[in-house]
């Protein structure tokens, strides 16, 4: 599903150069649930952003479904993200001015589908995350766990093949965090979504198929935890 080949990422500021990623090679299979761990600042988010085509590597290649993404235009990249990828962020990034339902509909705005269909799909996604009774609320009226569930609904509403989650439980207490984790596992097992999740929580990582550890921009460990389709 995703292939990363010799990914390097260097951040340049006026004074310093940071090598955030150094020669990452990674193959992620369809249907896999992969977790990424590592100390703060080791390049996890950078890696996830590159996988999600939000950021371009300094060198190396990103292939999604076998397709090269290096030279795609802004418009083509946008379409790619829209069709294939759903993002979940640590700090939710819901649009506070929009109601829950409108937030969830957002990815569908950039597709050619009718308003009616958009609403139906968004409602369906909200049912999946167990928030069908909060559609007309604004994000500010929700708890952290509920906000993240809205964000998940938004990530899955377009039925993307790949879900990228950057510390999705990082801002939540453990009970809420576990709820979110269960939801992700369900999406993976039942709906067959490919998921890449950055986490600091060893027990959560243990529930996934495979764990990749990063240290200082390099991949130090990659092992299977449990077989897929067990």
């Amino acid at each position: 599903m995703i292939q990363l080949k010799q990914i390097e990422k260097t951040y340049r500021t006026d004074t310093i150069e940071t090598l955030a990623l150094n020669g990452i090679n990674l193959n992620i299979a369809k249907g896999e649930f992969l977790s990424i761990m590592g100390p703060s600042g080791c390049g996890k988010s950078t890696l996830l952003n590159i996988m999600g085509l939000l950021d371009a590597p300094s060198s190396g290649e990103v292939l999604i479904d076998g397709q090269q993404t290096t030279h795609l235009s802004d418009k083509a990249l946008a379409r790619f993200r829209n069709q294939k990828i759903g993002f979940i962020f640590q700090s939710f990034h819901l649009i506070n001015d929009l109601k829950v339902l409108d937030n969830v509909e957002l990815p569908l705005l950039y597709r050619n589908i009718s308003a009616k269909e958009r609403t139906e799909l968004a409602k369906e996604a909200l049912v999946k995350v167990g928030l069908s009774n909060r559609m007309k609320h604004f994000p500010a009226q929700l708890s952290g766990g509920q906000k993240q569930r809205v964000a998940i609904a938004r990530a899955i509403v377009g039925k993307p093949e790949l879900i990228l989650a950057d510390e999705p439980t990082g801002n939540l207490d453990s009970a809420m965090g576990n709820e979110i984790m269960e939801l992700l596992l369900h999406l993976n097992e039942v709906d067959g979504a490919t998921i890449v999740m950055v986490t600091h929580d060893e027990t959560m990582a243990k529930k996934t198929h495979r764990l990749v550890r990063l240290f200082d921009g390099s991949q130090v460990n990659d092992h299977a935890l449990k077989p897929m389709y067990a």
């Binding site: 999600g52 939000l54 802004d74 418009k75 990249l77 946008a78 379409r79 993200r81 829209n82 069709q83 759903g86 993002f87 990034h93 819901l94 649009i95 001015d97 957002l106 990815p107 705005l109 950039y110 597709r111 938004r154 377009g158």
Partner: peptide
């Protein structure tokens, strides 16, 4: 900017 980031992440091009 958060809204802009989110919209881009979910498929809005610069033109849109």
């Amino acid at each position: 900017s958060s809204e802009i980031g989110v919209r881009k992440a979910f498929g809005a091009s610069s033109g849109t």
